[in-house]
Amino acid sequence: MTTEHTGTPRPSDAELARIAAELRALGEPEFDAELEATPVASLVRELAVPTAFALAFGPTDSALPAGAADPAGAGGLLDVAPLTELDRARVWRKIVARRSGGAAQHHGPRAPSWRATWVAVATAAGLALVPVLSTPDRAATPAGRAAAEALGSQARAALEGVPGEQDGGRAAELAAQYSARLSSSGSEAPR
C-alpha cells in the first residue's frame, strides 16, 4: 500500500513507515515510544501490516489486520507534517539498527551461532554428567567394611609369619646375595 499526501507520492516516507510498521508489529516498545514523537507515527498507524508478516511473527497490539487501514490513522494522515531531514535520519538510524538486530536474531547469520552455543552447552553438560553418573559407588557399607577389615587382619597376621626382610634390609640382603653371585661367576668383579 502506498501513501499519498495531497496527491503527491512520498515514497521515502512510505518506505520508512512501512518498515516502521514492521518493527511495530515485531513489538519494539522503545522504538514505538520514540516513533510516537515523530511525524512518521501517523503513517505507521495508517499502514496495514501484511498478512504474511503478521502470520510469521504474530500480531501485536499495533498490528492491524491485513489489508485494513486504521480509520483513525487514515483520518489523521492528512494532518501529518512532512518529515524533516532530522526525522528521517533519526528514524532510519533506529530502523537500520533495529532491523539488523532483529533480522539477525530471527533469520540472520547469528542464528547458527546461537544454535551452536546451545548445542555446545548441552554437549558440555552431558559430558560433565557422564563421569559423574558412570563413577562407581565405592562407598563402603558397614557389613562390607567389617568383612574387609576382618580379612585384612588375617592377611596382616599371615604376613607377619612369612620369613624375610623388607625395605632396606631386603635390599641389603639382595645386594649381598647378588654380590656373592657376581664374585662366584668370575666374569665380572664387583666394584
Binding site: 546461537w114 544454535r115 554437549t123 552431558g126 557422564v130
Partner: peptide, 17 residues
C-alpha cells in the same frame, strides 16, 4: 534449542550411565 540441548544432555548422560 534449549529443549534440544536438554534432550542431548539427557541422552549423553544416559550413555554414560
Amino acid at each position: 534449542n534449549f529443549v534440544l540441548g536438554t534432550v542431548m544432555a539427557a541422552m549423553l548422560a544416559s550413555l554414560g550411565a
